[in-house]
Amino acid sequence: MGMPNRKYADGEVVMGRWPGSVLYYEVQVTSYDDASHLYTVKYKDGTELALKESDIRLQS
């Protein structure tokens, strides 16, 4: 078993793309699913969504 190939840690605050949009919002990573390679993130309004790594970026 190798290390999970994840870029962002639980609790890390990053920018997540809103689905169907080009806009990124501040989100907190809450979990990562090794099987689906999706991150569960929480937006400031409390919305929780699963995002692909390509829809997440570090805060500038």
Score class of each variant (00 low, 15 high):
residue 1 M to K: 15
residue 1 M to L: 12
residue 2 G to A: 06
residue 2 G to H: 07
residue 2 G to T: 07
residue 3 M to S: 15
residue 3 M to A: 15
residue 4 P to E: 14
residue 4 P to Q: 12
residue 5 N to G: 14
residue 5 N to F: 07
residue 5 N to M: 09
residue 5 N to W: 05
residue 6 R to Q: 09
residue 6 R to A: 04
residue 7 K to C: 07
residue 7 K to F: 05
residue 7 K to H: 06
residue 7 K to S: 06
residue 8 Y to E: 01
residue 8 Y to V: 03
residue 8 Y to G: 01
residue 8 Y to I: 04
residue 8 Y to H: 05
residue 9 A to N: 10
residue 9 A to H: 11
residue 9 A to Q: 14
residue 9 A to M: 11
residue 10 D to E: 07
residue 11 G to T: 03
residue 11 G to S: 04
residue 11 G to V: 01
residue 11 G to L: 05
residue 12 E to T: 09
residue 12 E to K: 06
residue 12 E to W: 06
residue 12 E to V: 08
residue 12 E to M: 15
residue 13 V to E: 05
residue 13 V to I: 15
residue 14 V to D: 01
residue 14 V to E: 00
residue 14 V to Y: 03
residue 14 V to L: 07
residue 15 M to W: 11
residue 15 M to I: 07
residue 15 M to D: 05
residue 15 M to Q: 08
residue 15 M to F: 12
residue 16 G to C: 12
residue 16 G to K: 01
residue 17 R to P: 06
residue 17 R to I: 07
residue 18 W to Q: 07
residue 19 P to K: 05
residue 19 P to R: 15
residue 19 P to Q: 05
residue 20 G to I: 02
residue 20 G to C: 08
residue 20 G to Q: 06
residue 21 S to E: 07
residue 21 S to A: 07
residue 22 V to Q: 14
residue 23 L to P: 02
residue 23 L to Q: 12
residue 23 L to Y: 11
residue 23 L to M: 15
residue 23 L to H: 13
residue 23 L to S: 10
residue 23 L to G: 11
residue 23 L to F: 14
residue 23 L to K: 12
residue 24 Y to M: 06
residue 24 Y to E: 05
residue 24 Y to A: 02
residue 24 Y to T: 02
residue 24 Y to F: 12
residue 25 Y to Q: 09
residue 25 Y to S: 06
residue 26 E to A: 08
residue 26 E to H: 07
residue 26 E to I: 10
residue 26 E to C: 11
residue 27 V to Y: 06
residue 27 V to C: 15
residue 27 V to R: 00
residue 28 Q to S: 10
residue 28 Q to V: 15
residue 28 Q to K: 10
residue 29 V to M: 00
residue 29 V to K: 00
residue 30 T to K: 13
residue 30 T to H: 09
residue 30 T to G: 05
residue 30 T to C: 12
residue 31 S to W: 07
residue 31 S to V: 03
residue 31 S to G: 14
residue 32 Y to L: 01
residue 32 Y to S: 00
residue 33 D to R: 01
residue 33 D to V: 02
residue 33 D to L: 03
residue 34 D to M: 06
residue 34 D to P: 10
residue 34 D to V: 08
residue 34 D to I: 06
residue 34 D to R: 03
residue 34 D to E: 14
residue 35 A to W: 09
residue 35 A to L: 12
residue 35 A to G: 10
residue 35 A to F: 12
residue 36 S to H: 09
residue 36 S to Y: 08
residue 36 S to C: 09
residue 36 S to W: 06
residue 37 H to K: 13
residue 38 L to D: 07
residue 38 L to N: 07
residue 38 L to F: 10
residue 38 L to Q: 09
residue 39 Y to I: 02
residue 39 Y to D: 01
residue 40 T to R: 10
residue 40 T to M: 12
residue 40 T to A: 07
residue 40 T to F: 10
residue 40 T to W: 13
residue 40 T to Q: 10
residue 40 T to H: 11
residue 41 V to W: 00
residue 41 V to E: 03
residue 41 V to R: 00
residue 42 K to Q: 13
residue 42 K to M: 13
residue 42 K to A: 09
residue 42 K to E: 07
residue 42 K to I: 13
residue 43 Y to S: 10
residue 43 Y to V: 08
residue 43 Y to M: 15
residue 44 K to A: 11
residue 45 D to C: 08
residue 45 D to V: 02
residue 45 D to P: 01
residue 46 G to P: 00
residue 46 G to V: 04
residue 46 G to R: 03
residue 46 G to Y: 03
residue 47 T to Y: 08
residue 47 T to S: 09
residue 47 T to N: 05
residue 48 E to A: 07
residue 48 E to C: 11
residue 49 L to M: 11
residue 49 L to R: 09
residue 49 L to P: 00
residue 49 L to G: 08
residue 50 A to R: 14
residue 50 A to L: 15
residue 50 A to N: 13
residue 51 L to A: 02
residue 51 L to K: 00
residue 52 K to L: 13
residue 52 K to C: 12
residue 53 E to R: 02
residue 53 E to C: 05
residue 53 E to N: 04
residue 54 S to Q: 12
residue 54 S to C: 12
residue 55 D to Y: 04
residue 56 I to S: 00
residue 56 I to N: 01
residue 56 I to T: 01
residue 56 I to W: 00
residue 57 R to T: 08
residue 57 R to F: 11
residue 57 R to P: 02
residue 57 R to Y: 12
residue 57 R to K: 13
residue 58 L to C: 12
residue 58 L to E: 14
residue 58 L to V: 13
residue 59 Q to K: 15
residue 59 Q to M: 14
residue 59 Q to Y: 11
residue 60 S to I: 12
residue 60 S to Q: 12
residue 60 S to R: 11
